[in-house]
Amino acid sequence: MRILIADDHTIVREGIKMLLRDAYPNAEIVDVCDSIDLMKCVYKQKWDVIICDISMPPGDSGLDAIKQIKENSPKTPVIILSMHKPDQYAVRAIKAGAMGYINKGAATLELVKAVNQVMSGRKYLSDDVADVLADAFEHYNNATGVETLTDREFEVFKLIASGRSISEIAKQLVLSNNTVSSFRTRVFEKMGFQNNLELIRYAVDNKLI
């Protein structure tokens, strides 16, 4: 059994490895700290399961990584392990091809169960994630707000809401300032914002930051 872990926090990777070694003492477990090394490992070798954070440097998000993994190795199950609440990213992760989505706060209780389930070919959906997906399906034809944003637009939205400047966002996502400004313009047009303050207020009111 071969498991690949991708997370930019060393303490998180070490904790996951310790948990998985107890559950799978004969497994080969490899960990990486960014999306570049993640994809190098994916292109180089086959994995039984990949556990990936949703936010990693240097630019590609976990959502982008899922799509690339599924293009290269469609049958490899990917579990997203994230600090973000399911209502922010779970639907996008599942749409991108993830087989499971777990909040880091519940990882110790759920991760082994999730690994076993996705390796059997079934998605792992905790109760809170299942509720989010059911709600998203119910409102699919009447999408409003952040649901109308693409993955990259939503990423830019979140960074603006956290107070990042255009140049800071461009550096983090490895994009040009002009490209980030274009994404910002699309977000404003779709959401009806006139300025950053309105965007931040919306994010706070909807508990997106």
Rank of each mutant, 00 (worst) to 15 (best):
residue 110 E to P: 04
residue 118 V to S: 03
residue 108 T to R: 14
residue 105 G to L: 07
residue 122 R to M: 13
residue 198 E to R: 07
residue 193 F to S: 05
residue 109 L to I: 06
residue 199 L to F: 08
residue 48 D to Y: 03
residue 149 L to C: 11
residue 98 A to G: 08
residue 91 V to I: 03
residue 10 T to Y: 09
residue 174 V to W: 07
residue 44 K to L: 09
residue 32 V to D: 00
residue 196 N to V: 09
residue 80 I to G: 02
residue 30 V to H: 05
residue 7 D to G: 11
residue 18 M to E: 13
residue 83 M to I: 08
residue 195 N to E: 09
residue 177 N to W: 10
residue 82 S to A: 06
residue 61 S to I: 02
residue 53 D to S: 04
residue 25 P to A: 10
residue 65 A to L: 11
residue 68 Q to P: 03
residue 124 Y to P: 01
residue 92 R to W: 04
residue 21 R to G: 07
residue 146 V to K: 15
residue 141 N to D: 15
residue 49 V to I: 08
residue 29 I to M: 04
residue 201 R to K: 14
residue 178 N to C: 10
residue 9 H to M: 11
residue 128 D to E: 14
residue 156 V to A: 03
residue 180 V to M: 06
residue 102 I to F: 02
residue 138 E to W: 13
residue 179 T to C: 04
residue 96 A to G: 04
residue 51 I to A: 05
residue 17 K to Q: 15
residue 192 G to S: 01
residue 120 S to Y: 02
residue 57 P to V: 06
residue 41 C to Y: 10
residue 27 A to Y: 02
residue 73 S to H: 10
residue 57 P to C: 06
residue 110 E to N: 08
residue 28 E to M: 12
residue 70 K to L: 10
residue 172 Q to W: 03
residue 53 D to N: 00
residue 192 G to I: 00
residue 175 L to M: 14
residue 171 K to Q: 12
residue 128 D to H: 09
residue 200 I to W: 04
residue 134 A to D: 15
residue 161 A to W: 03
residue 35 S to Q: 01
residue 60 D to K: 12
residue 45 Q to T: 11
residue 169 I to P: 03
residue 146 V to Y: 13
residue 203 A to V: 07
residue 173 L to N: 02
residue 183 F to R: 07
residue 198 E to G: 05
residue 52 C to I: 09
residue 106 A to E: 12
residue 58 P to H: 10
residue 177 N to H: 12
residue 19 L to F: 08
residue 201 R to C: 02
residue 8 D to L: 07
residue 38 L to T: 15
residue 71 E to K: 14
residue 197 L to Y: 05
residue 178 N to H: 14
residue 153 E to T: 03
residue 7 D to L: 08
residue 180 V to L: 08
residue 163 G to H: 06
residue 42 V to I: 15
residue 42 V to M: 05
residue 204 V to I: 13
residue 119 M to C: 10
residue 155 E to L: 08
residue 21 R to M: 12
residue 29 I to S: 02
residue 84 H to W: 05
residue 73 S to C: 11
residue 161 A to V: 06
residue 81 L to P: 05
residue 85 K to S: 12
residue 29 I to T: 05
residue 172 Q to M: 10
residue 122 R to V: 11
residue 97 G to V: 05
residue 89 Y to W: 10
residue 55 S to C: 10
residue 81 L to S: 01
residue 26 N to W: 12
residue 173 L to M: 13
residue 28 E to C: 07
residue 55 S to Q: 12
residue 189 E to G: 05
